[in-house]
């Protein structure tokens, strides 16, 4: 029964990917990673410049999986209660309270998009992190649950003014950090500019087939994936070695150009991070029609699940992206399996 279930869901997942790839072109890797995070039930931090299609990408996925989609813009004056409720004077001249983005869709909330999260204050981060971890919120003297919610946050790494750096503990709550970059193929770039289909985002998103997946069944099916995709002893040993290498890269002979490796890493990947990596790797194995995780499945999600969890010396934080990329590539190259 599980095998058929796994196969059916895989077909649906691949169909969803296909639908999304039609409206967001040249982003196959981010699309695969977001699909993975949806089935691994992990939150995602999107990194990319302005106007590269992050919102379109998320709206397309939301339409495909169904459920509620809410979005909020991170600003320096945004307060935690802005996520929970709005107050306004109604037509009757009386004050009214309406649910904020988090509560608006109730338990049907499937995607919550926090745009430019690093512009919001730490208080807002704090609330969001609790919602991400517990998928619940206390408001109006009652407990609100968001069992199907996945948070997608976006941050712009280029602009640093009036921003609050997301602390490592907060970054660790995200399963993945996915870079969204503009495709560099001429044909894709040309179509993005000249193809009028991409000018109207609403119409574009409406072309995605609605509710390819059932958002309220994803949690249960995620457990099916995690229970059915196996990991061999060799793979476990390999994953452990990868983990050790993130903590002590020099022990594995890993070097990054222009970096004192003795001072670089303050903390490697966390246990939560490694478990999230394995969850994502299992989903990747399932998406590739395998019943067990291979090293290649880990490679597919290694950068996106580990890079943002590494804690570097402050002197190297400014070069974080390139250093993390080079170090993790070095780890993959250095650690053998079997």
């Amino acid at each position: 029964m599980s095998d058929r279930q796994l196969a059916d869901w895989r077909n649906h997942a691949l169909a969803l990917e296909s639908e999304v790839n039609k409206v967001v072109v040249g982003q196959q890797t981010p699309v695969r990673l977001i699909t993975t995070s949806i089935f691994a039930r992990g939150h995602v931090l999107l990194e990319g410049d302005v106007g590269v299609g992050k919102t379109t990408l998320l709206r397309a996925f939301t339409r495909g999986i169904g459920g509620g989609y809410q979005r909020i813009e991170g600003t320096i004056d945004l307060m935690p209660n802005d996520l929970v409720y709005h107050t306004y004077l109604g037509e009757d001249g009386k004050p009214h309270v309406s649910p904020g983005p988090l509560l608006m869709s109730g338990e049907n909330l499937s995607v919550f998009f926090f745009n430019e999260i690093n512009r919001a204050r730490p208080q807002v981060h704090s609330l969001l992190l609790r919602v991400m971890a517990e998928r619940s919120l206390s408001a109006f003297n009652s407990e609100h649950y968001f069992p199907h919610m996945i948070v997608f946050a976006d941050r712009n790494q280029v602009e640093k003014e009036e921003t609050f750096e997301i602390p490592s503990a907060a970054r660790d709550r995200f399963m993945m950090e996915i870079p969204i970059v503009v495709p560099n193929e001429d044909t894709i770039m040309e179509s993005l500019v000249f193809d009028t289909r991409f000018h109207n985002v609403d119409a574009l998103v409406d072309t995605v087939k609605a509710e390819v997946l059932q958002f309220d069944e994803l949690n249960a099916f995620s457990s099916v994936i995690q229970n059915n995709i196996t990991t061999s002893d060799t793979l476990k040993k390999y994953a452990l070695n990868l983990w050790k290498a993130t903590k002590a890269p020099l022990d594995f002979g890993i070097k990054v150009s222009g970096v004192d490796m003795n001072r670089l890493v303050l903390a490697g990947a966390s246990p939560r991070g490694m478990s999230m990596m394995l969850r994502a790797a299992r989903v990747n194995a399932w998406l590739n029609n395998r019943t067990a995780v291979l090293p290649e499945d880990i490679h597919a999600v290694f950068h996106s699940t580990v890079a943002h969890r590494l804690v570097f010396s402050p002197v190297y934080e400014m070069r974080r992206t390139e250093i993390a990329r080079e170090m993790l590539s070095g780890i993959v190259n250095a650690v053998a399996a079997p």
């Binding site: 290649e296 190259n333 650690v335 399996a337």
Partner: peptide
Amino acid sequence: LKQAVSKVHEALNATATVSVFSN
């Protein structure tokens, strides 16, 4: 057979100077 496969992996990695996988 397991040891043999492992030996071949080692030879591949040594030849490439990095870990070689199908990807």
